[in-house]
Simulated scan of single mutants.
Amino acid sequence: MPHNELYAHFHPDERAFVDRAWEWVERAAELHEVRRTDFLDPRQAHILFTLANRHPDAAIRLDGGSPDAERRRAIVAPDYRPLEDEPIGISVLAVSSDDRRIADLDHGDYLGALLGLGIKREKIGDLHVREDGCHALIAEEIGDFLRTHLRQVHRAEVSASVLPLEQLIEVKPELEETVLSVASMRLDGVASDAFRLSRAKIVDPIRAGRCRVNWKTVEDPSVPLSEGDVVSLKGFGRFKVLAVEGVSKSGRIRARIGKFV
């Protein structure tokens, strides 16, 4: 496929991944290779799924270890190969502790501890954090290393064990819901209210490429948001547009959002 056509629907920052993903698809279709990727974020999964569907001789399966997984591994293979029998290579890292401070740990604490051991983010899937510990979905090939070396998360001493996927305890992400009254559903307007920043302070980070909508970098502050969109702003967190609930008598739009906590 010509490169201009390959890149047509993707952001320039995504070109390196598009090239890699297309190579996986071509090698599966033409060289009959089977490839299992690391964990992909939702945008990368969308790109790979889109490219695989463009090639009639390639097939793809995405699996993150649970039905609602955000980050997923992919298997790319020739279209004649049954993918359901291919192992996805995901284990559960169970982190626990007798230290009462474990109840204060959050997603960032656990992720930071894992990355601090030299693990690449791509080897880690979703993290399910509870008051008594965490179940982290991981690439099975790093399970023994983490079981041996993960001894501390933030200030709490911990122990780690590796479990099969069937023993995963899922935790649904918490959303702090708020109803906003906005002039329009423009990205800068909704995000400034959601993050409690002035419109002037929200525009610069958006234009600098620090904002993603549905995991795709967006640099235009005027992009309209719709129900279901997930917006993240580096350094400020992320929120989801849960519903657009109508227009008030004064002409303002009521939008219900959920901030990830």
Rank of each mutant, 00 (worst) to 15 (best):
D57L: 09
A58L: 13
I75S: 00
D85A: 05
A58S: 11
I60S: 08
P67I: 01
R81Y: 12
V76L: 12
R73L: 11
R81A: 13
D57K: 06
H55A: 05
D63N: 08
R71V: 02
L83R: 15
D57Q: 15
I60E: 04
D57H: 07
Y80V: 15
D85W: 01
S66A: 07
V76K: 05
D63E: 03
G65W: 12
P56F: 03
R71S: 11
I60Q: 10
H55D: 14
L83K: 08
D63Q: 04
G64C: 10
E84H: 12
P56E: 02
P67T: 02
A59G: 11
P67L: 09
A77S: 05
R54D: 02
I75Y: 12
A77V: 13
H55I: 11
A58P: 12
A69C: 15
P78S: 00
R54W: 02
S66T: 15
R54K: 10
P82D: 11
D85Y: 01
A69L: 13
A74I: 00
I60K: 10
D63K: 03
A69F: 05
H55M: 04
P67C: 03
D68S: 05
D68V: 05
E84G: 02
G64V: 15
E70T: 15
R61K: 15
V76H: 07
S66M: 02
A58I: 07
R54T: 01
G64W: 10
A77P: 04
R71P: 03
P67S: 06
P78N: 11
D79C: 08
I75T: 09
H55C: 08
A69K: 12
E70M: 12
A77W: 07
A59Q: 09
A74N: 08
R72Y: 04
L83P: 06
A59Y: 07
R72H: 00
E84M: 10
R71W: 00
E70V: 14
P78G: 00
V76E: 07
D79M: 05
A77N: 09
A58F: 15
L62N: 00
R72I: 05
R61D: 07
S66D: 02
D63T: 03
D85Q: 03
A59S: 14
R71T: 05
I60H: 06
E84K: 12
D68W: 00
I60G: 09
P67R: 04
A58M: 14
D85C: 01
D68P: 03
P82C: 11
E70F: 08
A77K: 13
G64A: 14
G65D: 02
D68C: 01
R61E: 14
A74D: 09
L62F: 01
Y80K: 08
G64F: 14
R54Q: 09
A69P: 15
H55V: 10
L83W: 08
R54F: 01
G65P: 13
L83N: 03
R72D: 05
R81M: 15
D57R: 13
